[in-house]
């Protein structure tokens, strides 16, 4: 216990000696973690909003359930005969219900209230060229079996590829800034070790274990890293909560992201941050204490 408090006290003393470096390190970890957190959350949100449009569904034809299933069958057959159409899949009311449950699994109140009878069956069309969606709309104009046509056009594909680009470029930046944080930690430790040179020499002389000599440095790196990531994650949650409640968001986009995913993301980031701090401190200590 006395050992632990000594280590903690020394960690804080070290950090107080180089406040600017500590600050810079925390900021770097913060920005890096924030980038990772927000882009991964954003991707999850986009995925949730586009589940229907993935796997190459370019046009969804909602069917009028008042007309007979034979009419639905006929429509499907004629769609299949069009040259621009690659495949047509029939999506029953039951499947629509399943999909709805998946999409809104975070809103149990909604799931409880909704009358699944109103969910229509549909035909999901994959086109050879997504930009031909206008042709389908023209062809089906006035068809009594059709209730509504929704098309992703190229927009969804573009959105998805944009998200991927965003995730990749943000990850690259996160890596760069993470590397800067790494360098900062190493330098902070080096300065701390230098200013405690004599103390460390005496500790070695009187037989303090090397773990004991190292612990304040390891603690320092881990604490800085965890503080940065915690603030970033806190910000991230706040931003998501804010967007969920904002009117603008609701009108274009459903901010649905599962709490499970957010918790998973948070814990993974904190874990990663811990490992990052440990790793940086090991490298830093090797350089600083040269052993």
């Amino acid at each position: 216990m006395s050992k632990f408090s000594y280590v903690l006290k020394n960690t804080l003393l070290n950090m107080r000696r180089t406040p600017l470096l500590v600050f810079a390190t925390i900021i770097a970890v913060l920005v890096s973690s924030f980038l990772v957190f927000t882009t991964l959350s954003a991707r999850s949100i986009v995925e949730n909003n586009t589940i229907r449009w993935q796997n190459g569904v370019h046009v969804v034809v909602f069917l009028d359930d008042r007309v007979t299933t034979t009419a639905h069958k006929q429509l499907e057959e004629s769609l299949e005969s069009y040259p621009e159409v690659r495949t047509v899949d029939y999506f029953s009311k039951l499947e629509a219900e399943e999909e709805f449950k998946v999409l809104f699994k975070d809103q149990p109140e909604l799931l409880a209230e909704v009358d699944y009878e109103i969910l229509p069956s549909s035909l999901r069309i994959n086109l050879n060229d997504p930009s031909d969606y206008t042709l389908i709309i023209e062809r089906l104009d006035g068809n009594p079996a059709v209730k509504e046509i929704r098309s992703s056009g190229e927009a969804i594909e573009r959105l998805l590829s944009l998200t991927d680009t965003l995730v990749i470029s943000a990850s690259a930046f996160a890596l760069l800034i993470g590397f800067a944080a790494f360098i900062l930690i190493i330098n902070t430790l080096r300065i701390a070790a230098f200013s405690k040179k004599k103390e460390i020499r005496i500790m070695r002389l009187v037989g303090a274990s090397s773990t004991y000599i190292r612990l304040p440095f390891i603690f320092e790196a881990v604490i800085e890293s965890l503080i940065g990531t915690s603030i970033a994650v806190g910000f991230g949650w706040a931003v998501i909560e804010y967007s969920k409640n904002s009117v603008v968001a609701e009108s274009i986009f459903d901010i649905t992201i599962s709490d499970d995913y957010l918790i998973f993301l948070t814990l993974s980031l904190l874990m990663f941050s811990l490992i990052f701090g440990l790793f940086a401190s090991f490298v830093g200590i090797r350089k600083a204490l040269n052993d």
Partner: peptide
């Protein structure tokens, strides 16, 4: 090799402190 920012008592105690004595 004494620590300048510690007094005599603390310099001697340092050797015990780093061994985790109570």
């Amino acid at each position: 090799q004494l620590l300048e920012n510690r007094n005599t008592f603390e310099n001697i105690a340092f050797a015990l402190e780093v061994m985790g004595a109570l």
